[in-house]
Structure formats: structure tokens, C-alpha cells
């Protein structure tokens, strides 16, 4: 290590550089191998989901040969589902509940975040904290009192119940994300707009929303994820098949019948998982940035 060693023999440090390089390359390869291992483990269920979805019930029940491969791949399960009125119903229910939830949640969150980060009123600090706290209240804590409340409102077994309840799951975190993004917009920007002649609504629509677009994308994805994947509320409050969303429809309705409908069940899972996967494929970076922005600050 000491400098005196280098005085006599020049090649020594060179060899050291070479070994460091080698070490680094080894570490890189080790990382790749380990990552490959984890990716394989992680992808077993989705892989098996797709494999099974391509099998016929006959092939599944025969139990002949390797279950990890398909002998006679077929899209029949997918076709059948697509023409199945019940499945179409679940899909439509999920789509409309999710669309309304996202719109509602984002509207509430953006308005509140704008107010909390820019306008302020007595107690706005308390409200911000309160919003964060409610984010920490899990759905499984309140589903029983909510069951009673929905009963009074006559919303049991109606997808409207979900439209009412899903925002409670999405809004707190969406507001939290949006407050973060809005606060990072320099104060001078709205002041410049104010001087340029913009009103508060104009500042929100023409400056804040476009500038905080990455945050809006992140929050929208969050709201989407919550609404699309929710299981407890639809399971608890929607008991008839025609009101079911995808998750409940698949888990509760499809499983009932023939045991050998697994091909179809897995096809349904794959189709229901496709929208989030597509969205994440394109917008993952925004979502991750939004999730981690608050956490890594400071």
C-alpha cells in the first residue's frame, strides 16, 4: 500500500489495477447471476399463470408429463372468456369503477394539494398531517362499520359503493404525492404568473398541472392500482355476480364450478393483470419517482 513499494518495481501497481478491474467484473457477473436467479423465482407464478391459461381442461386434468410446459397451446380459454357475458360484465364493472375512482380521486387530491401547498388557511398544517395519517388506515380496519353505513345508504351490492369507498383509499396518498410535487414548484413561478395576470384557477390549470405532470401521472397510477386491484371491499359488499369487479368475479364466481376450469381462470387472471402491466411498462419511471420522491428527500 505504501508509496515506497512502488519506487523499485513499476509493474506492481499495474498488476493491482488489473486485479481491481477483474474484481469489479467478477462482482458484476455475480450480480447478474444472482439477479437472474431472483427474476426466475419472481416470475414463476406469472409464467405458470400464462402456461396454464394456454392449456385445455383435458390437458390439465390428464396430468400427463411436465406441467411447466404446454403440449397443445390454445387460445380457447381467452376466446371463451371474451365472449362470456359474465366476464365481460366484470371487466366493464372494473373499468367504470376504476375510471370514476381515478377521476374523482385526482380531482379531490389536486384541488386539496393546491390549496394546502399554496394558499393555506388556519389548520392547513393539521390537515396535511391528518391526510397522511388516514393514508395509514388500512381498508381492513373499517370494512365492518362501512358495511353498516353502506346499508343505510342502500349501496350494498352496488358498484356505486366502490365508487364511494375507493377514493378513501386513493385520495390520501395521491394528495400526499401532489403536495410534494406542488411544493417543489418554486414560489416565484406562481408569482410570475400572478403578475402576468393569471387568476388562481388559471395558475392551477396552466402552470401547476402541466409542471407537475410527472406527479399527476404517479398519483393517477396509484389510484388506478388501488381501484383495479381492490379485493376486500368488492368481496364484502357486492354479493351478486352481475355487480362483481374482475378480482372478485374471478376469485369467487369462476372458481365455483368445474374444478378443471383452471385454464380459464388463469386466462382470466392474465387478462385482468394485463392493464396494470401495460401501464407500468410505459409509466413505471414516473410511478417510482413519485413513490420514492418523498422518502428519499432529506
Amino acid at each position: 500500500m505504501s508509496a515506497s513499494a512502488t519506487a523499485g518495481n513499476m509493474p506492481a501497481p499495474k498488476a493491482k489495477v488489473g486485479s481491481m478491474e477483474k474484481q469489479r467484473r467478477m462482482a458484476l457477473w455475480a450480480s447478474y447471476i444472482a439477479l437472474t436467479f431472483f427474476v426466475i423465482i419472481f416470475l414463476i407464478p406469472p409464467f405458470y399463470m400464462i402456461i396454464t391459461s394456454l392449456k385445455t381442461s383435458a390437458e390439465i386434468s390428464a396430468q400427463a408429463g411436465n406441467p411447466w410446459i404446454v403440449q397443445n397451446p390454445t387460445f380457447d380459454n381467452y376466446w371463451e372468456l371474451m365472449t362470456n357475458a359474465a366476464f365481460q360484465r366484470y371487466f366493464i364493472n372494473s373499468v367504470w369503477v376504476t375510471a370514476v375512482t381515478v377521476t374523482l380521486s385526482m380531482t379531490i387530491a389536486i384541488l386539496a394539494a393546491f390549496s394546502l401547498s399554496r394558499m393555506g388557511f388556519k389548520g392547513s398544517q393539521v390537515l396535511s398531517t391528518g391526510v397522511f395519517l388516514t393514508y395509514l388506515v388500512p381498508p381492513s380496519l373499517l370494512f365492518i362499520p362501512l358495511f353498516q353505513i353502506l346499508g343505510w345508504l342502500g349501496l350494498i351490492n352496488s358498484t356505486w359503493a366502490l365508487v364511494l369507498l375507493f377514493p378513501t383509499l386513493a385520495v390520501p396518498f395521491c394528495t400526499w404525492i401532489m403536495i410534494g410535487y406542488f411544493s417543489s414548484i418554486p414560489k416565484e413561478l406562481d408569482e410570475a404568473a400572478l403578475i402576468d395576470g393569471a387568476s388562481y384557477p388559471q395558475i392551477l390549470i396552466q402552470i401547476f398541472i402541466p409542471v407537475a405532470l410527472p406527479g399527476i401521472i404517479a398519483a393517477t397510477i396509484f389510484a388506478f392500482t388501488v381501484a383495479w386491484g381492490a379485493f376486500l371491499y368488492p368481496l364484502a359488499y357486492l354479493y351478486s355476480a352481475d355487480q362483481a369487479t374482475l378480482t372478485v368475479g374471478i376469485v369467487r364466481e369462476l372458481i365455483k364450478g368445474d374444478v378443471f376450469a383452471w385454464g380459464m381462470i388463469m386466462a382470466a387472471c392474465a387478462m385482468a393483470a394485463a392493464p396494470p402491466i401495460i401501464i407500468y411498462t410505459f409509466l413505471m419511471d414516473y410511478y417510482i419517482a413519485g413513490l420514492t420522491a418523498g422518502a428519499t428527500k432529506g
Partner: peptide, 20 residues
């Protein structure tokens, strides 16, 4: 009088240009 009706213009230290 609100800023927009004062007929003034301001240049800020950090420029405050609309990034989008």
C-alpha cells in the same frame, strides 16, 4: 389592487420561467 392589475412586470432571481 391585485398584482395583475398593477401593470408591472417583475424579473426574479431564479428567473421563474415556466418550464413547460
Amino acid at each position: 389592487v391585485p398584482p395583475r392589475d398593477r401593470d408591472i412586470a417583475m424579473v426574479f432571481q431564479n428567473y421563474a420561467l415556466y418550464p413547460h
